[in-house]
Amino acid sequence: MSLTTHGAVTAPLGTTTAFHWVLTVQTANGGIHTLSGGTYLRPGQSRAEVFAGLLEQAATVLATQRPVVLFFSLERDELTPADRLDNGTGVRQ
């Protein structure tokens, strides 16, 4: 996993799925930080594994030992036609 966006992450070999994540934490000094990015997950990889890895990386990046998680989101990085403003037609509705 990486704290960078998909544009800077190369998909690993094999079958993987792109996900986008957002993590907001509070550090011991009271600072609130939101980190986000993209990652590619192996089939069968759990949310708990992803969360633990991202939290560990966030602690390293923010130079803090135990950040308090305020928000975490992990979603597939794709829009279905129903999610798009044009409803998949190519014409804005």
Score class of each variant (00 low, 15 high):
78 E>L: 10
71 F>Y: 14
25 V>C: 03
65 Q>C: 10
31 G>H: 15
56 E>W: 04
59 A>H: 05
53 G>D: 13
75 E>K: 07
4 T>R: 15
88 G>Y: 08
70 L>H: 10
73 S>R: 12
2 S>D: 08
30 G>V: 04
69 V>K: 06
37 G>R: 06
33 H>I: 06
3 L>F: 08
83 D>Q: 12
84 R>P: 03
33 H>M: 03
59 A>F: 04
10 T>F: 10
77 D>W: 06
15 T>N: 13
31 G>M: 14
80 T>L: 15
17 T>P: 04
66 R>I: 08
51 F>P: 01
38 G>F: 08
33 H>N: 08
58 A>K: 05
83 D>F: 06
35 L>P: 02
33 H>V: 08
6 H>L: 10
37 G>A: 07
44 G>M: 04
50 V>R: 06
69 V>R: 08
51 F>K: 11
27 T>H: 09
82 A>D: 12
91 V>F: 12
76 R>Y: 05
18 A>C: 11
9 V>K: 13
35 L>R: 08
48 A>E: 15
9 V>I: 14
30 G>F: 03
2 S>Q: 11
81 P>Q: 07
9 V>W: 13
74 L>D: 00
26 Q>G: 10
84 R>E: 06
46 S>Y: 01
66 R>C: 03
55 L>W: 04
9 V>G: 04
20 H>L: 10
18 A>F: 10
42 R>Y: 06
72 F>S: 00
64 T>P: 05
87 N>L: 15
74 L>K: 01
83 D>L: 05
57 Q>K: 13
93 Q>D: 11
83 D>S: 04
54 L>P: 00
71 F>V: 10
55 L>M: 02
18 A>R: 13
40 Y>G: 01
68 V>K: 15
16 T>L: 13
82 A>V: 14
92 R>L: 15
44 G>I: 03
20 H>Q: 13
52 A>N: 13
28 A>V: 14
27 T>C: 09
90 G>S: 04
72 F>L: 01
23 L>V: 07
54 L>R: 00
59 A>C: 09
19 F>W: 11
1 M>Y: 11
41 L>C: 05
5 T>M: 11
91 V>L: 14
88 G>K: 07
1 M>G: 11
52 A>T: 11
79 L>H: 02
35 L>D: 04
16 T>H: 15
60 T>F: 12
43 P>C: 07
25 V>T: 07
69 V>G: 02
29 N>K: 14
67 P>F: 03
78 E>I: 10
11 A>R: 15
57 Q>P: 01
5 T>L: 12
56 E>G: 06
30 G>W: 05
25 V>W: 05
9 V>M: 11
57 Q>F: 03
1 M>A: 12
63 A>M: 14
34 T>N: 09
84 R>V: 02
62 L>K: 05
6 H>M: 05
40 Y>V: 02
23 L>C: 02
67 P>Y: 01
64 T>I: 07
64 T>N: 07
78 E>C: 03
13 L>N: 11
55 L>R: 04
21 W>M: 00
79 L>I: 01
41 L>E: 00
57 Q>L: 10
65 Q>P: 09
35 L>H: 06
53 G>K: 12
33 H>T: 07
45 Q>L: 02
73 S>V: 03
